[in-house]
Computed example of a mutant assay.
Amino acid sequence: MPPTPDSGSFVDFVKKRIASMNPPPRFVETASDYQYDEDRTCPCVNVHITFDDTAALTPTGRQALKLQVTSRYCRHPVQKNLGFGVAYSHRGKTTDESMEGAARSFIEAISAPQLGSNSP
């Protein structure tokens, strides 16, 4: 993970990473919210994003579906050149407004091990 001099640069890095993983024209972003967060032991970016997936592969063939993702991307608390992400998603014909509670519970349960700087 490259160094980022400030919180805005870290948020920009996460935005670019998400865009590279969900490229147009297949994925069309319809809503997003990126929030920098230092409430845990390391800097993180909390993301809520919705896409129109224009070519989702389903048992009945390709079709357009909504893709909602709630995620957290963090810099490792000790090994600053490492990062990790955790995501919870829903894909369907419509968005799932009740997904947020399950996503938050899942993401909050994830923690990074406190590896020393000499650990592999």
Results as ranks from 00 to 15, higher is better:
1 M>P: 00
3 P>C: 02
5 P>C: 06
6 D>M: 03
9 S>Q: 10
9 S>G: 08
12 D>Q: 09
16 K>V: 04
18 I>Q: 06
18 I>C: 03
19 A>I: 06
19 A>C: 04
19 A>D: 14
22 N>D: 08
23 P>C: 01
23 P>V: 05
23 P>Y: 14
24 P>D: 05
24 P>T: 09
24 P>S: 14
25 P>Y: 04
26 R>N: 09
26 R>C: 02
27 F>Y: 15
27 F>S: 00
29 E>T: 12
30 T>S: 10
31 A>S: 13
32 S>P: 00
33 D>A: 04
33 D>V: 05
34 Y>R: 07
35 Q>K: 05
35 Q>N: 05
35 Q>F: 00
36 Y>G: 11
37 D>Y: 04
37 D>T: 03
38 E>L: 11
38 E>F: 11
38 E>A: 13
39 D>V: 03
39 D>N: 14
40 R>V: 04
40 R>H: 10
40 R>W: 04
40 R>A: 13
40 R>S: 14
41 T>R: 14
43 P>I: 02
44 C>E: 02
46 N>L: 12
46 N>W: 08
47 V>I: 12
48 H>L: 07
48 H>W: 05
53 D>L: 01
54 T>F: 06
57 L>E: 10
59 P>S: 09
60 T>C: 06
61 G>Y: 07
61 G>T: 08
61 G>E: 10
62 R>E: 13
63 Q>F: 03
63 Q>H: 02
65 L>W: 00
66 K>C: 06
67 L>V: 01
68 Q>N: 03
68 Q>G: 00
69 V>Y: 01
70 T>E: 13
71 S>L: 07
73 Y>F: 15
74 C>L: 01
74 C>A: 01
74 C>W: 02
75 R>W: 00
75 R>E: 00
76 H>T: 06
76 H>R: 03
78 V>P: 07
78 V>F: 06
78 V>E: 10
78 V>S: 08
79 Q>Y: 03
80 K>Q: 10
81 N>Q: 11
82 L>T: 02
82 L>M: 13
83 G>A: 06
83 G>R: 04
83 G>S: 07
85 G>E: 15
85 G>F: 10
86 V>S: 08
86 V>H: 03
86 V>N: 07
90 H>V: 10
90 H>E: 02
91 R>F: 03
92 G>L: 04
92 G>E: 03
92 G>R: 01
93 K>G: 02
93 K>W: 07
93 K>P: 06
95 T>A: 11
96 D>R: 15
97 E>C: 01
97 E>G: 01
99 M>E: 13
100 E>G: 05
100 E>K: 11
100 E>V: 08
100 E>L: 09
101 G>A: 15
103 A>V: 12
103 A>S: 11
105 S>H: 05
105 S>Y: 08
106 F>M: 11
106 F>G: 02
106 F>E: 06
107 I>M: 08
108 E>M: 06
108 E>P: 07
108 E>V: 01
109 A>M: 14
109 A>R: 15
109 A>D: 07
110 I>H: 11
110 I>A: 13
110 I>W: 12
111 S>D: 12
114 Q>I: 04
115 L>I: 05
117 S>V: 11
117 S>L: 03
118 N>K: 12
118 N>L: 07
118 N>R: 08
119 S>W: 09
119 S>C: 10
119 S>H: 13
119 S>V: 13
120 P>S: 12
120 P>C: 02
